[in-house]
Amino acid sequence: MASKTKKQIGKVANWILTFVLMLVIGLPGLWVVLTAFRPNREILAKPAIWIPEKLSLDNFGKIFGYGVDQIAIPVPSYFANSLIISLTSTAIALLIGMSGGYAFARFRFKRKNGYFLALMLSRTVPGIALSLPIFMVWSRLGLIDTKMGMIIIYVALNIPFTIWLIDGFFRQIPKEMSEAAQVDGCTRWQAFWKIEFPLAKSGVASAGIFAFLTSWNEYALASQLTRSTDSKTLPVGLMDFTAQFTIDWAGMSAMAVIIIVPALILTFLVQKHLIAGLTFGGVKG
């Protein structure tokens, strides 16, 4: 009897803990989202107004240049820059990553662990530390404040992790699949595209989403290497809302929502493959 109650207490405790946990994880984001739909007056009210009196899309209209009072921040072009830079760099990183990941998964060569480590170490260079020399080199090449300049950097940033993930996914496919296809008359190239790629497709897709999000969310480099509407991305643009002493909480929250939403949707799409890829790539060397 005693152990039964003990068990039930344990269960309840579990649920309470889980609830608190979810609150800590979810509440900050939800609060920002809620703020995005509230007028500044309500946000700044003292004492706090807990129940919103009215929710509206005004803040979004404002930052996209509609409505009565517009904001001088060109969010649509930041959005476009972010999208172009992230998509292009992801596509290129995926191609390069597939090629490299395949090499690690399928070939034996000398110093393999060494090359892999070298790749990973290139990723460890802190963005801000890397931004200094890139700033100097890029300004000589005329790449400062260009989308091209950012795309090249994000490709480099995404390659190591993309290779890690894709390597893991290709490793899950038995080597015999491609061998069977070659015996069946395929060239190695055909065997890859007809057999191995379709089997690793979902994994490659999640590596792509991961790469996209890295580019989409990156700040340290972009904040130093972009200047104008030519190349400024959303995370950098977010800082436009902070003037010396004032912060436009409503506008910033609305912009935050714009940055978060694609990330959340994409996370939801990949979560399953991502876990598999990370663990597999890591554990099975």
Binding site: E179, Q182, V183, D184
Partner: peptide
């Protein structure tokens, strides 16, 4: 290359696609 040899092969774990 394997495809030029006019052979076919059955693998231990079958390697079905």
């Amino acid at each position: 290359a394997p495809r030029k040899r006019d052979i076919s092969m059955v693998f231990q774990n079958y390697a079905l696609y």
